Simulated assay, not measured.
Amino acid sequence: MWSDRTPQKQLIGIDVGGTKIAACLVDLQGRILSTIQRPTDVTEPEATLDSIAGSVKQLMDANQLDSKSIDAIGFGIPGLVDAEKGIGIASVNLGWKNIAVRAGLEARLEIPCIIDNDVRAGAKGEARFGAARGLSNFIYLNIGTGISAVILLDGKIFLGTRGLAGEIGHAVLVPDGPECKCGGRGCFEAVASGPGIAERALGKIKNGQDSILAPQGGSHLPILTAENVFEAALHHDQVAIETLEEIGKLMAYSLQYLTLAYDPEAIIIGGSVVLSNPLLFKNIQQMLRKLGRSSWVFGKAYSKDLVRLSTLGNNAGVLGAAALVAPQP
């Protein structure tokens, strides 16, 4: 069906989010050549597929590409994805349940499409273009609104018996801690995701600690975000500083667990929470050094390069999607 296509020298990657779609044209080295963004229509699944396909057509029109000049297009999709069957099993952000994503996009675009979960795509992007180049055994940990990991062993993604490998966000870090959307309490995600960081700082304010984050001249508690906490820490706010110290320790414990479970060459951290906050990453590294000194077992695995930040930054989504269709180097 697709035999009349010429080998591509450019890749198209599409990062699908609940509010916006980013479409990117990149070369085989991962250099961005062109990018566009448009809102995601989530009114119904067919409308969402239309808006995704529309972003591809807009990008191709802007770069004078036709359907025969592109071998395939990669799509990073939030939520549970069956990449082999091309099915969006479930996505809270998109309101999807068992949607034939690949078939729907190929019908609209007449180009082969490859879909995968956005975090798995991000891991493949790091392996191809980013901080994990040349590594066969690494873990990609994405920390944002949610928390999840992708484990690559001998160059292949390890899914586990039930496809749950890497769902570290739902491992309990703080017994009887804050409620998690999975139904548990004290999960890594509930404690250390963006919303979890904001909630921890808010708890300190509720307990009467002084902070520039506290309401001024009124009794209503503020609506906080992790970004508010990061900004307050830059202004030497004690609540924010304490919050990030505590979160840094908890993140370091989780990184230690992952290291001792899988013995990776490196753990790559992506996602907005750590990438946008150097102080938090500094706290993580300080605690990891302490753990490495106190335990000879973890000390054998620990080095200053064990945990690394993603080098793809805000482009991780589109470059990860592009990596899904990149030829083998």
Rank of each mutant, 00 (worst) to 15 (best):
E245V: 13
A107R: 08
N314L: 14
I115D: 00
R31G: 11
A326N: 07
R133W: 04
D116R: 00
A252H: 05
E242C: 05
G74Q: 05
S3M: 06
G169R: 08
S3K: 09
N283E: 15
S272P: 10
Q238S: 13
V229L: 08
G184T: 06
L213T: 08
K204C: 02
G313S: 14
S55M: 03
G248F: 05
D305Y: 00
L94S: 01
V274G: 11
G299D: 06
K181L: 15
L33Q: 13
A107F: 00
E46C: 01
A72Q: 12
V274C: 14
L244H: 02
M1Y: 02
G177V: 13
T259I: 05
G270S: 11
L255Q: 07
S34D: 09
G160N: 03
S55T: 04
R38H: 01
S3W: 04
P215G: 13
A240G: 06
A171K: 02
V274R: 11
G299E: 05
K57T: 12
L288H: 12
D61I: 08
V42H: 02
A232T: 04
S211M: 12
A62G: 14
D82E: 09
A103G: 06
S303F: 00
F281E: 11
L152S: 13
R128N: 03
S136Q: 15
T145E: 07
N277H: 02
I197F: 05
L312F: 14
G13N: 07
V150P: 04
A103W: 00
S254M: 14
E227R: 14
L291H: 13
K9E: 15
A123H: 00
L255V: 09
H236T: 10
G208R: 03
G30D: 04
G177W: 08
I205G: 02
E245P: 03
D154R: 07
E227P: 00
K57F: 05
L135T: 07
G299V: 08
G194L: 04
G196K: 03
N207R: 14
L291M: 15
G160P: 12
G130M: 09
A62R: 11
I14Y: 04
G30V: 06
K181N: 14
R200N: 10
S34R: 07
R133M: 13
A214H: 09
V191Y: 12
D41A: 05
Y257V: 09
L49E: 02
P327S: 08
D210C: 10
S67W: 03
D27T: 07
A123W: 01
L291D: 07
